[in-house]
Lab assay of single mutants.
Amino acid sequence: QWKVGDKCSAIWSEDGCIYPATIASIDFKRETCVVVYTGYGNREEQNLSDLLSPICE
């Protein structure tokens, strides 16, 4: 189960590419979260089910 502060990978809606991110907040009722893309600072809402394991850098 994901928690705030977890590192993950998420698909950015603008280009469909996968980027490393950190979970900033979680809404368990809606099963969504807000991620912050590492190195970019962009925030975006994602479905918890769409999150991927962190990418090894």
Rank of each mutant, 00 (worst) to 15 (best):
S53N: 09
R43P: 05
W12M: 03
V34Y: 05
S9T: 08
T32D: 02
L48I: 04
C33G: 00
K7E: 12
A10Y: 06
W12V: 05
S49F: 09
W12D: 01
D27Y: 08
N47S: 07
G41H: 07
F28M: 11
I26H: 02
S53D: 14
G16I: 08
I23G: 03
D15K: 09
T32S: 04
N47V: 04
G39E: 04
W2T: 13
W2N: 14
I23P: 03
Q1P: 07
W2H: 13
K7D: 11
Y37W: 06
T22G: 03
C56V: 14
T32Y: 07
L48K: 01
D50F: 10
D6W: 11
S25Y: 09
C17D: 07
S49V: 11
E14A: 13
E14K: 15
P54E: 06
V35M: 06
T38V: 10
T32Q: 02
G39P: 09
P54D: 07
D50T: 05
R43H: 10
Q46L: 10
P20Q: 12
E14Q: 14
L51Q: 04
R30W: 07
T22A: 03
P20S: 11
G16V: 06
V34N: 01
S25A: 08
D27W: 12
R43C: 13
G16C: 07
Y40N: 15
E31L: 14
L51G: 03
F28R: 12
E44Y: 06
I18D: 02
S25W: 10
Q46R: 07
V36L: 07
T22I: 14
L51A: 04
G16W: 08
A21E: 02
V4P: 14
K29S: 12
S13R: 09
N42V: 15
C8N: 00
Y19I: 04
N47L: 12
A10F: 07
C33Y: 08
E57T: 15
W12K: 01
D15G: 06
A21T: 05
V35H: 01
Y40Q: 06
Y37H: 00
Q1K: 14
E44P: 06
F28Y: 15
S49N: 08
S9W: 15
Y19G: 02
S49G: 09
I11K: 09
I55W: 12
V34A: 02
E57P: 12
L48W: 06
I18T: 02
E14I: 15
L48M: 04
V34H: 01
S53A: 14
V34D: 00
P20D: 12
A10K: 05
L52K: 06
I23A: 04
R43Q: 14
F28C: 02
I23T: 02
C33H: 00
V35G: 01
Q46Y: 05
S9K: 07
P54A: 08
I26Q: 01
S49L: 07
R30V: 08
G16Q: 03
R30N: 12
K29T: 12
A10V: 13
S49H: 08
S9L: 15
D50K: 06
C8M: 00
L52C: 04
C56Q: 15
C56N: 14
L48G: 04
K29P: 05
E45V: 12
Y19A: 01
N42R: 15
W12F: 10
K3I: 13
L52Y: 10
I18Q: 04
G5D: 09
S25F: 11
K7W: 11
D6P: 00
Y19H: 07
D50M: 08
A24D: 09
S53F: 10
G41F: 05
D27T: 04
Y40D: 01
E44G: 04
D15Y: 08
C17G: 11
F28E: 12
T32M: 08
S53H: 08
I11N: 01
N42Q: 10
N47K: 14
C17S: 03
S25K: 02
C17V: 05
K3S: 09
D27K: 06
V36G: 00
E31G: 15
R30Q: 08
Y37L: 01
R30D: 07
L48D: 00
K3D: 13
I18E: 03
D50V: 07
E31H: 11
D50I: 09
E45K: 05
D50R: 07
V36D: 00
C56R: 11
E44I: 05
T22R: 09
Y37R: 01
V35K: 01
V4F: 04
S9P: 05
Y37P: 00
Q46D: 03
C8L: 00
C8S: 00
A10P: 01
C17A: 10
L48C: 15
S49K: 14
Y19L: 06
T38I: 12
I11C: 01
K29W: 11
A21F: 10
D50H: 05
S13F: 05
D6L: 09
P20R: 10
K3L: 12
E31F: 12
E14R: 15
W2I: 14
L48V: 04
S49E: 09
D15F: 10
W2K: 14
G5H: 02
S53C: 08
S9Y: 15
L51M: 05
S25T: 09
P20H: 11
P54C: 11
I26S: 01
K29D: 13
V4W: 06
S49I: 11
V4S: 06
A24C: 07
N42W: 15
K7L: 12
G5R: 00
T22P: 01
Y40M: 15
I18F: 11
I26G: 01
W2M: 13
G16S: 04
Q1R: 14
I55T: 09
R30Y: 09
D27L: 10
F28A: 11
E14L: 14
P20T: 09
I26P: 05
Q1H: 11
T32R: 08
A24G: 04
C56I: 15
K3G: 14
E31I: 09
I55D: 13
S9G: 10
A24P: 02
T32K: 08
G5C: 12
G5L: 04
K29E: 14
C56S: 14
I23F: 03
D27V: 09
K29Q: 13
A24V: 15
V35E: 00
S25R: 06
F28D: 08
W2C: 14
L52D: 01
Y37S: 00
S53R: 13
S9F: 15
A24L: 15
Q46I: 10
Q1C: 15
K3W: 13
E14M: 14
T32L: 06
G5P: 06
G39Y: 14
I55E: 11
K3C: 10
N47H: 12
L52V: 03
D6H: 00
Y19W: 04
I23Q: 03
D50P: 03
E57L: 12
V4C: 13
A24R: 07
T32I: 10
E44M: 09
T38K: 05
A21C: 15
T38E: 13
D27N: 08
D15S: 04
F28H: 14
W12A: 02
E57Q: 11
P20G: 08
L52Q: 02
Y19P: 03
E57I: 13
N42E: 04
I55L: 14
V4H: 08
T38C: 13
C33L: 06
E57A: 15
W12Q: 02
T22N: 02
C17R: 15
I55C: 13
P20A: 13
Q1M: 13
I55M: 14
R30C: 01
I55F: 13
I11E: 03
T22V: 14
K7T: 10
E44V: 05
T22H: 03
T32F: 09
D6C: 12
G41W: 09
L48P: 02
F28S: 09
E14H: 13
C8T: 00
L51P: 04
I55H: 08
T32P: 05
I23M: 02
S9V: 08
I55P: 09
G41R: 08
S49R: 13
I11A: 05
Q1Y: 12
P54V: 08
T22F: 08
K7H: 10
V35L: 06
K29G: 09
V35R: 02
V36H: 01
V34L: 04
N42D: 10
G16E: 02
E44D: 06
Q1N: 13
I23C: 01
A10D: 02
G16K: 04
V34F: 06
C17T: 03
C17Q: 15
